[in-house]
Design a protein around this nucleic acid. Structure first.
Lengths: 161, 161
DNA sequence: CTACTTGCAAATCATTTGCAGATGA
DNA sequence: TCATCTGCAAATGATTTGCAAGTAG
């Protein structure tokens, strides 16, 4: 849960993701390249959950133009995760990402029929993590809760079917 | 969360895993074979978290004797999961299993250094799942909570190092 | 008997890596 | 300049599948 920001008060303006990423890259002696720019812009163009393939589908044009390649997409997703701009989770064996930068902490309901993720916030989960961690002399870095089941839409569809 | 048992009161005796599995197999028109017996016996010989490779390591002799093969181990793990005898989770891209049959529901602390899973029980998590699910008109089948961080042992080791 | 199972070899599939040429600071 | 990057092709590693021979009921 490294917070490299001096301030994240929600009232304050926050630098755009690309700038934030540029800082991170610089701090590691890495470079701001055309492909990293393209990928970050795409990732933060809208809020959503996505995996590498879905991201590449959105980048199709750039990929066909040979401006971005599959390995670079994977490499950049790792860097963005390291930088704390996105968060990675594993869903059915596949890596799925979501925005972390500028987006509030939350957990998920996962519909096992349509595979959708529904976000929810619950302060209590933090409290519980802390209590349990204390009991086991465990140093928390983060927690993740998934509630699996069937969403309202899919239940409706099933009844109709 | 399908419960195929008529009763799971902890005071009552419970049939051995192999018998339970035999019932499941029969109900599906499947057969009790030597390899399924060997694998179930091994899986339930002690309580632990394990992945396919670790299980195969324990089955090394049978594998060398050509009594059990890698595909059969994978196939049987799937069946045991379907039968509800074991539970599957994904940890760092790898499938990890644990006993479900005859073992109380729990969640995990996951040490990111030594990769150990520490179990804990917390009724409140069920209550929270239910509340959240209700808010989103979501039908729960189960939940899973992971608290990631560093366990006491690894912290000690790090201080010494 | 004969449908279900198995081991084997080969296929998959997501993700990663080696490398020679390209490029940002 | 020159270390960092990139695309390409190929490697990886866990898991799965097709298939002919084996076996449970």
């Amino acid at each position: 849960m490294a917070d490299n920001n001096f301030s994240l008060n929600s009232v304050e303006v926050q630098q755009p993701p690309l700038e934030r990423f540029a800082q991170f890259l610089q701090s590691r002696g890495k470079r701001v390249t055309k492909q990293r720019r393209i990928i970050v812009e795409q990732v933060f163009s809208h809020h959503d959950h996505f995996d590498a393939d879905e991201l590449m589908a959105h980048l199709r044009e750039a990929i066909e133009r040979r401006e971005v390649s599959r390995p670079t997409v994977y490499r950049t997703l790792s860097e963005l995760t390291e930088a704390g701009l996105i968060r990675k989770m594993t869903l059915a064996g596949r890596s799925v990402y979501e925005h972390a930068y500028g987006y509030p902490r939350h957990d998920h309901l996962h519909c096992q029929v349509c595979n959708t993720l529904i976000e929810f916030q619950c302060e209590e989960l933090d409290r519980i993590s802390q209590t349990v961690a204390r009991q086991h002399d465990f140093q928390i870095s983060s927690h993740r809760m998934f509630v699996t089941g069937i969403c309202a839409n899919c239940r409706k569809a099933q009844k109709l079917g």
